[in-house]
């Protein structure tokens, strides 16, 4: 094997990396990567496996395959930890905030990117200035505002506030994208007697699909992973907890039930992982759009 490799690359200069054929190098790379990836996802695989084990078995040295697989942890997590309810809450906040965010930021980005209206410079300046404001800076007034508006104890309040996290970045992404489009687009539709709202909805928004995908992906990740805001809003109201906060509280309340915790964790990650596996291309294009845009 080694001889054949040497023979095939004999013409190449005698550098160390040229000693091995490209194909053999790729195989070696693949093996190294496979080992790395196995280590990389081991904690998650271990967690899924532990979710089928009894509490005693988890800390016994039994490897990844449970001796006597049990779904009891899942039943306990579902009933005691209220995971079903948290699941619904998370879906509501995620889907709602994605819809609101996409529409609001696309509209605002469209106007900022294509119109020279009075006040545009001021608005752009304000937005850039607040681009990287940390959540710790805004959380107290946000909580107070929601309470004053009567939304401090509601999923709607949580959903709306979740829209706020990245509204500036998303708007700027849309503005940059819309600004590059030819201005004949609106002229053509005005000639045809199409109103501005229809032009936006049927012409401009479909054309900005790459940015829409980026915003949907980033906002989904944001909402599903969000922690500080739901934690603060649900401190006094456990019924509104999202999965993240629910799993966190489960740990605080049942701190020795590791089997239940792992089952609750598995329930939390399974939907987002499935979503990711199916929409992987969009996730990757979406994130890539954030850097290129």
């Amino acid at each position: 094997m080694a001889d054949a490799t040497m023979g095939r690359t004999a013409r190449a200069p005698a550098r160390r990396e040229a000693m091995v054929s490209p194909r053999a190098r790729r195989t070696i790379t693949s093996v190294v990567l496979a080992v790395l990836c196995a280590v990389w996802v081991y904690p998650i695989v271990w967690m899924i496996s532990a979710s089928f084990k009894t509490n005693n078995e988890i800390f016994g040295d039994t490897g990844l395959i449970p001796d006597a697989p049990t779904v009891e942890n899942y039943a306990r997590a579902w009933s005691e930890a209220n995971i079903g309810r948290y699941f619904f809450n998370t879906m509501f906040v995620t889907v709602g905030s994605v819809v609101v965010t996409v529409i609001a930021t696309a509209l605002m980005g469209y106007v900022l990117g294509r119109r020279r209206f009075p006040g545009r410079g001021l608005l752009m300046g304000l937005m850039v200035f607040t681009l990287f404001i940390p959540q710790g800076y805004t959380i107290i007034p946000v909580f107070e505002l929601l309470t004053t508006a009567g939304l401090g104890q509601s999923l709607w309040g949580l959903m709306l506030a979740t829209c706020g996290h990245s509204v500036v970045i998303f708007t700027l992404l849309f503005a940059g994208y819309f600004a590059q489009m030819p201005k004949e687009l609106e002229e053509a539709s005005r000639m045809d007697g199409v109103g501005p709202v229809k032009t936006f909805w049927y012409v401009m928004l479909p054309l900005s699909k790459p940015i829409v995908v980026t915003v949907v992906v980033l906002q989904t990740l944001q909402a599903w992973n969000d922690f500080l805001l739901p934690l603060v809003i649900t401190l006094a109201n456990p019924d509104l907890r999202t999965l993240s906060v629910g799993v966190y509280s489960f740990r605080g309340e049942h701190f020795i039930d590791w089997g239940g915790m792992n089952a609750a964790s598995a329930i939390t990650i399974i939907p987002i992982v499935i979503l990711f596996l199916f929409l992987q291309r969009y996730f990757i294009d979406g994130l890539a759009g954030a850097v290129k845009g």
Binding site: C37, W40, V41, P43, I44, W46, M47, L221, W224, N225, F227, L243, S244, V245, G246, V247, Y248, R251, W258, M261, N262, S265, T268, I269, I272, V273, L275, F276, F283
Partner: peptide, 15 residues
């Protein structure tokens, strides 16, 4: 390699 990114922190904390 992307899998931990979509795993919420509360889960990661437990794991």
């Amino acid at each position: 390699i992307f899998l931990p990114v979509v795993t919420p922190v509360a889960v990661i904390a437990i794991v």
